[in-house]
């Protein structure tokens, strides 16, 4: 079994693991690590399940519904029911994403110049492999570590710069462009730069 197939299996299964996956995990440290993280995420999810509201709270909600329906006030904030709001949102985010990318294009030149001014040894160290998606806040003076090849998204929040995404996950079968786009979507309030070394 290939690592990408194992990761896919770990992510999508809602029950136990098949023998091939278990066998792979005993020999592959990287997938084992992913499986451990996956288990911990599941445990955290289970342990933070929302507590059901009290009957009093529900009674208040129901009273609110009844009185609003009776007074004919449909909603404080009408939305179109037939069309999921996510469509509306995604087109807005798409525009913002494009805006961010346009911004990226403008700033890219500056970043590239800055990058090439980083001293040699520091730069060599900086090109050391950096795990995709791991937040590494950097001070203004220190270089941002990125790999050669993948497109990375760098956010600028105040003085801190950090690599917030990279399309290095192609082996897992996820559409990298989709993941990167979602990254940009979730960073619409932060200036970002898409960069490729």
């Amino acid at each position: 079994m290939r690592c990408s197939e194992v990761i896919q299996e770990l992510i999508t299964s809602q029950g136990g693991r098949d023998d091939a996956v278990v066998a792979h995990l005993t020999t592959c440290a990287s997938c084992r690590r992913f499986a451990d993280d996956s288990e911990l995420l599941d445990r955290v999810w289970t342990q933070t399940r929302p507590v059901s509201p009290s009957l009093d709270s529900w009674a208040q909600v129901w009273d609110g519904i009844q009185s609003r329906l009776a007074s004919g006030i449909e909603s404080h904030h009408p939305t179109v029911l037939a069309m999921p709001a996510t469509h509306k949102a995604s087109s807005r985010f798409r525009r913002l994403g494009l805006l961010a990318l346009a911004q990226a294009a403008a700033v890219l030149f500056v970043v590239q110049i800055g990058w090439h001014f980083i001293p040699g040894p520091g730069r060599d160290a900086a090109q050391k492999t950096q795990l995709a998606g791991v937040s590494q806040p950097r001070s203004e003076a220190s270089p941002i570590e990125i790999d050669e090849g993948p497109i990375v998204v760098i956010s600028f929040a105040g003085d801190a710069r950090e690599v917030v995404a990279a399309d290095t996950d192609s082996a897992s079968g996820v559409d990298d462009g989709f993941v990167l786009f979602n990254e940009i979507e979730s960073l619409v309030t932060t200036p970002v730069v898409a960069y490729q070394e």
């Binding site: 996956s38 995420l41 795990l131 791991v134 897992s172």
Partner: peptide, 9 residues
């Protein structure tokens, strides 16, 4: 897949 990978990272 993307959400879980992202959450774990």
């Amino acid at each position: 897949h993307a959400a879980r990978s992202k959450l774990q990272s």
